[in-house]
């Protein structure tokens, strides 16, 4: 009988102790905000283009954290979708876009002769990458442009083009070597069929 009481007491004391410990830890090491949102935001391309239907990348990150689909970022491309799927540990869906390939990085370019200086594109630019003033010619600060093409729509004279970024000596990169072994004709079909099956599965 005595032993039982002692056991119960010991367990109760231990429970109290650990409860206090946990309570203290939950206060002391409280996580401010949702860390997953920051991680998702990190993966998004930060073009702030709004093509996902959210006003900027962070709102979309928050939406994803709340269960929104992860394949709504055309500027990020499939690689972003994959990265998000990896982070969230879900099956990677295909990119939800019209031309679902890797996105072509581009920057806005203002045909300066045609610019009338309406400042509409300046107001539209989410990263303040357009320089200009009312009735003055505007120009895009290329290094700041994220290529979100939000400035194209508001332009009343359609003088903004999205120009793909050219590869320079600095940005050139080695290609992935082509697979050295060419499959023989009969195997090629099988291989693809196998690949399809794999995808389907």
């Amino acid at each position: 009988m005595n032993a039982v009481i002692i056991a119960i007491l010991v367990l109760a004391v231990l429970a109290l102790l650990f409860g206090l410990l946990l309570g203290y830890a939950s206060v002391r090491f409280r996580v401010e905000g949702n860390p997953i949102v920051d991680q998702i935001d990190e993966l998004l391309p930060q073009t702030q283009c709004g093509q996902c239907g959210h006003p900027g990348c962070r709102p979309y990150a928050e939406a994803i954290a709340n269960g929104e689909a992860i394949n709504k970022c055309p500027p990020g491309g499939q690689s972003t979708v994959d990265a998000l799927a990896d982070l969230l540990d879900v099956e990677a869906p295909t990119l939800d876009a019209e031309d679902a390939g890797e996105p072509v990085k581009s920057v806005a370019y203002i045909r300066e002769d045609e610019c009338i200086g309406c400042t509409k594109c300046i107001q539209a630019c989410p990263v303040d990458a357009i320089l200009g003033a009312a009735k003055q010619m505007h120009t895009v600060i290329t290094s700041e442009c994220t290529g979100c093409d939000l400035c194209v729509e508001p332009c009343p004279v359609d003088c903004i083009d999205m120009v793909p970024i050219e590869t320079t000596l600095g940005t050139w990169k080695w290609d992935m070597p082509k697979p050295g072994v060419e499959l023989i004709a009969t195997d090629r079909g099988r291989g693809e069929a196998f690949a399809d099956q794999g995808e389907a599965a």
Binding site: P45, Q46, C57, P126, V127, D128
Partner: peptide, 15 residues
């Protein structure tokens, strides 16, 4: 790109 994205975010937030 990440750096640029970070920079873009900074600019966006500043804006």
């Amino acid at each position: 790109e990440k750096q640029k994205a970070e920079y873009a975010r900074m600019r966006f937030e500043a804006r």
